[in-house]
């Protein structure tokens, strides 16, 4: 028998998840701002057609100065125009759609794949584990950006290919984390009990292992969106990402870099959006991690 710890009290009514989440947000200003930013961003992307005063692909004669240079903020274009005479705000809003969609889709795929690999490897063990984890190691040792560029130059740039390439690269970290968690979970008595009951492997993984991994998955998925958006931006910046003329933030930065000295808004607008979004996802991820980790010290 082990002596009870000092905190002997059994928590009788643990506050529900939502109430606890809202409670902890009140004391965490950065997290609160991050969540608000992400909500606003999502709304902006969804309602882009309503918010934008111009279509994103339309070039405007009046959007260019007499010498052909883009014009600055004002004059009917809230954030100015780009060298083709298109409305920067409209492109930014539609770009948010592209960047967020790619980030979330790519990372969603990576998460599903990572969880499947980690869970299967950790639970089944043996040669299945050996093969899966060696594969993970191999993928992890690729130089990511170089690999993406090479892959896309073979398959040709398209939004779908960008998603697939990012997903192919980003599942590894999660797979490793999930596997190590499963390794310790499978020794817990309730998992051994599930095995001795005669439940199928699939049911044990689904009902007795997976629910305990959800906090980890949510946290890493959130953090992963930020990385995926960054990778998308890098690929587009290098010209192997989202093909023109579809706007994405990375691609807008790429186009703006040549005009930096005469039209700095072309860089600043998507650049600031990118930084704020990635930061918001990261801070929200940190907050989620603390919220869902029962061993984290409680903040009062």
């Amino acid at each position: 028998m082990t002596a009870p710890p000092i905190a002997e009290a059994v928590p009788l009514a643990a506050p529900t998840g939502l109430r606890r989440a809202l409670g902890s947000l009140r004391h965490d200003l950065p997290a609160l701002i991050s969540i608000l930013v992400l909500v606003l961003l999502a709304l902006a992307a969804i309602f882009a057609p309503l918010l934008a005063s111009h279509p994103p692909l339309q070039t405007y004669q009046e959007g260019l100065a007499a010498n052909g240079a883009p014009i600055g903020p004002g004059h009917g274009f809230p954030l100015g125009t780009d060298p083709n005479g298109r409305d920067v705000l409209a492109r930014l809003l539609y770009g948010a759609r592209v960047s967020l969609t790619i980030g979330i889709l790519a990372n969603g795929l990576a998460t599903v794949f990572g969880v499947l690999v980690g869970l299967t490897a950790g639970y089944l063990g043996g040669w299945v584990e050996t093969i899966l984890m060696r594969l993970t190691d191999v993928v992890m040792s690729f130089p990511i950006l170089l690999f993406c560029i090479a892959l896309i130059s073979v398959t040709g740039p398209s939004e779908r290919n960008v998603v697939i390439v990012i997903a192919l690269i980003y599942w590894t970290t999660l797979a490793r984390i999930i596997r190590s968690q499963v390794l310790s979970l499978r020794e817990r008595e309730f998992v051994v009990a599930a095995r001795t009951m005669g439940l199928s492997h699939w049911r044990i993984m689904r009902k007795h292992l997976f629910p305990h991994l959800v906090p980890t998955i949510i946290v890493y998925a959130t953090l992963g969106v930020a990385s995926s958006i960054l990778i998308e931006a890098s690929l587009s910046f290098l010209g192997v990402g989202v093909p023109v003329p579809t706007p994405s933030w990375g691609q807008m930065i790429e186009q703006g870099k040549e005009y930096f000295q005469i039209a700095p808004w072309l860089l600043f607008a998507p650049g600031v959006c990118l930084i704020v979004t990635v930061l918001a996802f990261n801070l929200a991820g940190d907050w989620l991690r603390d919220l869902l980790d029962p061993t984290a010290p409680e903040r009062r």
Partner: peptide, 24 residues
């Protein structure tokens, strides 16, 4: 066959704090 056989023999574990799935 092993899964089916398990109905014949069951186990009670040591740690009442760990032997039940806390999420169910």
């Amino acid at each position: 066959a092993l899964r089916k056989f398990r109905a014949h023999m069951q186990m009670v574990f040591q740690d009442p704090y760990d032997s039940l799935n806390p999420r169910l």
